[in-house]
Amino acid sequence: MDNESVVLAAPLFATMDEDERHSLVASMVKVELNRGEVLFDEGENGDRLYIIEEGKIKLGSSSGDGRENLLAILGPGEMFGELSLFDPGPRSLSASAVSDSVLYELEHSALVRVIEERPAVAKHLLTALARRLRRTNEALADLVFSDVPGRVAKALLDLSTRFGERVDEGIRVAHDLTQEELAQLVGASRETVNKALADFAGRGWVRREGRAVVLLDLDRLERRAR
């Protein structure tokens, strides 16, 4: 799938014919970010929807004492910022690039016009929001009911479904996260997450490769994630 096809697969385009899709993409602004570059901060007024063409974007929030919580990692074909259409106001999360990224930006007025012309688009946007909310609710439940190794296993499996690549030994996941970012995603300390990963590696379930990991035993990881 080429880069433009990745963008066109986003829920925003679900009810459009080919000419309408390409016309809308042509009206969007292309945004390029380097790794670590901030797209927007929590609290900023939000009036843009974004679709990722390349790279990875992290969504997170910060506490008053400076601690950070990483809520989601999004990749090619995924979109964010649509909440501003249904609930205008300050951004509830910050967004920054985990790796060099390319996005397409659609301003609020243009998005409203699309919704008015094609009301069915709203259904697809709400479905995308509901899926993200469901994942957030699952993550919150995991914080209460799952131990750290279980959450690490589940995070690796989730990342593998979107960023994994089949290799001879299993699935290689180039997550591009630092140890601190992975810990934030799991909701635990870096030391505890590293201990869990070291245990998985010792058992032969994974092999660590810098900002990537090879999942060697999916069955064991799935059982540990339950």
Rank of each mutant, 00 (worst) to 15 (best):
N3A: 13
A10V: 08
P11C: 13
L12F: 11
D17N: 15
D19C: 02
E20M: 07
R21D: 12
L24I: 14
M28H: 12
L39N: 00
E42L: 01
N45E: 15
R48A: 13
L49M: 09
E54C: 01
G60C: 10
G64P: 02
G64W: 02
D65H: 09
D65N: 14
N69W: 04
L70M: 14
A72T: 08
I73W: 03
L74W: 08
G75R: 04
G75V: 06
G75A: 12
P76G: 13
G81S: 05
L85H: 00
L85N: 02
L85G: 02
D87S: 07
S92W: 00
L93F: 10
L93K: 12
L93M: 11
V98P: 03
D100S: 13
E105L: 08
S109C: 08
L111H: 02
R113L: 14
R113P: 07
I115V: 15
R118P: 03
L125I: 07
L126G: 07
L133Y: 04
L133E: 01
V144A: 11
S146P: 00
R151I: 01
D158K: 04
L159C: 03
L159M: 06
R162D: 15
D168R: 00
V173R: 01
L177W: 03
L177D: 05
A183M: 06
Q184H: 06
A188E: 03
A201V: 00
R203V: 05
R220M: 14
E222N: 14
R223H: 15
A225T: 15
A225V: 12
R226N: 10
